[in-house]
Design a protein around this nucleic acid. Structure first.
Lengths: 240, 240
DNA sequence: TCCGTAAGATGACCTAGATCAAGATCGCCG
DNA sequence: CGGCGATCTTGATCTAGGTCATCTTACGGA
């Protein structure tokens, strides 16, 4: 969070222009001058350890965040204390936009493994959006995308079976890995079975059994968190 | 959609400043000059009959909409053809923001009863947002609110029983009626049992049975679509 | 006014996934 | 290196809500 990041060995990218993720979180049509302006306001944080919170529900909303490395989950806690995982955030993805509505975060965000995030103070982002219309547009689009993502999840929870839900999540992670030039067929799940179940409205036991069945059908090879997709067609057919 | 609205007997409000709903859909801190600018771009549509679409999924995204009277539902259709109701929109509420992300609507929107909506061309709204920062802020907030709403629904679908889901929906509608100075305890549901079930991830039969049980427990009086809430405390306890 | 179709209610039964209960494995810390 | 709590798997049982079938009621059109 300090301006010393340039000297920190863990922060190899010191500005957005050099960041390997910029194609994912920045608007494509940005002038290099504009990237520099954005750089000015983005704060690159030092690495966060596993299970460290980035913010807690109820805290005053100040910033949105971009994942630089590692992975983050968002979750809400309802009155009766039970958690609901609302999203998994991989490198290049933005989170924290739920806080805008009420000036307080409604979710908590926590590093699922060692992670680095960029903090973008929202008031400065708003100012900059007035100077750079394509940035305004980009943020409207990001928020809209979040809405459509949530609506996909709503449909999934409302209409689909356990197998369909798990298949859909696996394909989503596979696609997001492809977007960042990683393998779409062999990857490591950053989250626990419990998180998967919570996110998909299933129990851990059901998630475990679905993984078991998928292996028996030669759809996947599962070794703990390591996944290898063996049959994309069948998986896609399931996810529909 | 024409500029003749002032002469149309069904459109009693000819500008946002006079509209009974403006406290709900406009930012509060707007100067009257700014309201006039907004008025300039808002197109007041003539009344829509029941079951008329405002837009269809896949159409090019041009505008967001505000409900002036009546009620509207949004829904998506998945690959296999099944519908998912993603929201009910009552007077004063904004819809259509799902279209921003991909320049095409992902939902279809349809009048559940005779309704009137205002159309707000999004490109003009973006321009105006640059001139009126509080309008930009307001739209960011509206979209963020949509995100938190969707996340509430996700939690509801993922963690709550049929009774809890129905109770939550009834309280939501009750509260939204209160916001527009209507009774929170006696109201008419604009949507069918099928829509309620679809929205809440339940079958019509289950919705019907839950209404039956709620009546037997003297929680509600139900007469077709007419609802009277008899015991708010118990209903709130259920909805948690 | 009457008819036909859609919407809603209710009952009997069935099933996907929850719950409960044991093991098996993993990974962290002394 | 060894032990212990957390995570994961697997099996046996239970249940909320789905499915199917029937009946009632409401409503729109000629």
């Amino acid at each position: 969070m300090s301006s010393m990041d340039a000297k920190c060995p863990h922060n190899t990218e010191v500005n957005c222009g050099d960041c390997r993720m910029n194609a994912l979180c920045l608007p494509l049509a940005l002038q290099s001058k504009e990237v520099a302006q954005l750089d000015e306001i983005v704060q690159r944080g030092r690495p966060l350890q596993k299970d460290r919170h980035i913010y807690n529900a109820g805290e005053e909303f100040k910033s949105v965040f971009a994942v630089r490395s590692g992975s983050v989950k968002s979750y809400t806690v309802s009155n009766d204390g039970q958690e609901q995982v609302t999203g998994f955030h991989l490198p290049g993805e933005i989170f924290g936009m739920d806080g805008i509505a009420h000036n307080h975060y409604t979710n908590s965000a926590l590093a699922m493994e060692t992670a680095a995030v960029c903090e973008i103070p929202f008031s400065r982002l708003q100012e900059l959006s007035i100077a750079i219309p394509s940035l305004q547009r980009h943020f409207f689009q990001l928020m809209s995308k979040e809405i459509t993502n949530d609506q996909h999840l709503i449909t999934l929870l409302s209409k689909n079976s356990a197998e369909e839900r798990v298949a859909t999540l696996l394909l989503s992670i596979s696609n997001r890995n492809l977007r960042r030039q990683l393998s779409g067929s062999r990857f490591r799940l950053p989250m626990s079975r419990a998180d998967i179940g919570n996110y998909l409205g299933l129990t851990v036991e059901t998630v475990s059994r679905v993984f078991g069945r998928f292996q028996k059908q030669d759809l996947l090879r599962v070794d703990k968190k390591e996944i290898e997709v063996l049959d994309f067609d069948k998986l896609r057919a399931l996810a529909n």
